[in-house]
Amino acid sequence: MMFIRKPKATACRLAVAAFVSLFAGLVHAASFTFTAIPDQDESRLTERFGKVAGYLSEQLGVEVTYIPVKSYPAAVTAFRNNQVQLAWFGGLSGVQARKLVPGSEAIAQGAEDTAFKSYVIAHVSTGLSASGGFPEGIAGKSFTFGSKGSTSGRLMPEYYIRSHFNKSPEQIFSRVGFSGDHSRTIALVQAGTYEVGVVNYSVWDDELKQGLVDPAKVRVLWTTPEYPDYQWSIRGDVDATYGQGFKAKVRKALLEMSAPELLQAFPRSAFVPASNSDYAPIESTAVSIGLMDAP
């Protein structure tokens, strides 16, 4: 039970702790706090990441709290306001956060995140199928992204689609929606509500495995080239607050995290080192499609 600091803690207690900390502890920034929005299954976050908090606390020797947040922008805002010092961001939200908090840096990424990708999926009624190349036929269909601030559900697919057609999505598709979430994207395309959508590959693979995707109704048309995605970012001022070398200790703890029940929360197989420069392509992409102003 080394991962859980209070072995008797029930899910309910963890939830209480999380909320009390969100509003009492965090306001005073008493303990080292992190947040994470996984790319899938956002339910029971406090239960799952409570274990991660326990692990980090053991390793770092300070009290560590997890707070749940609702969206990428909320995570970035909490990071910016120093309500969290460490965050598991998507590629784009990490870039946005580090831009807003000078001195912060990316310290680790998921092993899978060095070469992340998105799928373009379509309802069978479109008659489109995978042909190896870019699916030209998606033009004129109704189309949905995931969340507005998502790297795999918005930024990178939009970039590839824009560069292929040399037009904006609004000009290419009959309608452009934002489902808000990868699972929603799959559900909506499967229902034929939107004809085409883009989705994070790992969410798709996972839902396919669980039998939530009906291959008779929705299928993958195309896989985007690979790009870097999720990463741990940490504020630059943690060494000053928590002692010299704290940042290095955090990085070490993350990279050494090996228990499957911890990694399952993200879900990643392991964490590997990362740096700000790994995400330069993401930033330039965001600038090129107008999601960020040029630095």
Binding site: H123, S142, Q190, A191, G192, T193, D214
Partner: peptide, 9 residues
Amino acid sequence: VTTRDPWLE
């Protein structure tokens, strides 16, 4: 109105 199979969801 453009829907195909909303019934599963």
